[in-house]
Write a protein that binds this DNA or RNA. Structure first.
Lengths: 148, 148
DNA sequence: GCATAATGTTAAAATATATTAATATCATCA
DNA sequence: TGATGATATTAATATATTTTAACATTATGC
């Protein structure tokens, strides 16, 4: 497996590009549809320069792309399913968050927003494939697994 | 959505914990089964201290857990499906890697290793749910999406 | 038991990367 | 051209990573 290292490195870079609070919010926002920098800036409450830097990084990592229209630049996800993919990781963190009802319901909200088939509120582009499989029916076996 | 920030921050932390070449290799390795530090050290070709520190970080983020036996410490994935989840992101980077046949086949190898139902070679713990959906049949619509 | 080797963990220091905020530059359109 | 919006650059600060070394624990041989 000669290029396994390369693949792992690429994956690590992608994960690194996404491992930022603001950038995840941008992902969430862009999952709803195209947005210009100004809109993202308002939504996130950070400077436009910072938004631009985040977008630049996401562009570098081929997560987003843009479309120019006059002086407006609209950003969008290259593959909107990356958003679903990220959110499908909710299952790996929810046990950390399952403390208050408020947080639990926020997790539900997030899941509905990002993972339900009717996710994009208005004028949705197309029905999306579900990646997340709710529930943990496969929880029977203790993960002792095998030896090498 | 009051705790959305919290959820996004948690997700970002998880992604951050995984966004390292060595740690992804550890994930891959542990997907095969329990491993002691020494084995990981040999496999990755890095210092045992570094392995231990990586494992410590993964432990902090509840990705792995350990079992002690004498002077050996065996690590395993808390939820082996996290490994599949990470590898299902291959689709988001493969267009960057699709250059040589060698790389392409390495991607295939990686996919087979991590995502095929019979993934763990020997004495597999249980049939695993597939998260990755091969192919891109939903590629018809240009992602113009909707406006807010 | 005692010394020694094997296995892991931890801490501290050095290095490398990432983030931020401020500023500068560039492009577009009225 | 002037106003606006977007991007690039920079420098400072903060985080992460790596290395080295010290430490703890368990097994083994005498």
């Amino acid at each position: 497996m000669p290029f396994r290292e390369l693949i792992t490195a690429e994956l690590a870079k992608l994960l690194g590009a996404l491992s930022h609070h603001d950038r995840l919010l941008i992902l969430e926002e862009l999952y709803q549809g195209e947005r210009e920098v100004k809109a993202l800036q308002k939504k996130l409450g950070i400077s436009h320069s910072r938004v631009s830097q985040h977008l630049s990084l996401l562009r570098t990592h081929k997560v987003v792309t843009e479309r120019r229209q006059g002086r407006h630049v609209f950003y969008r996800l290259i593959d909107p399913e990356i958003s679903q993919w990220v959110m499908s990781a909710l299952r790996f963190i929810e046990f950390r968050l399952q403390h208050t009802d408020e947080i639990l319901s926020a997790v539900e909200d997030a899941r509905n927003l990002w993972l339900s088939p009717q996710a994009p509120k208005k004028n949705e582009p197309a029905p999306r494939k579900l990646i997340y499989i709710p529930g943990r029916q496969g929880e029977s076996e203790p993960p002792t697994q095998n030896e090498a």
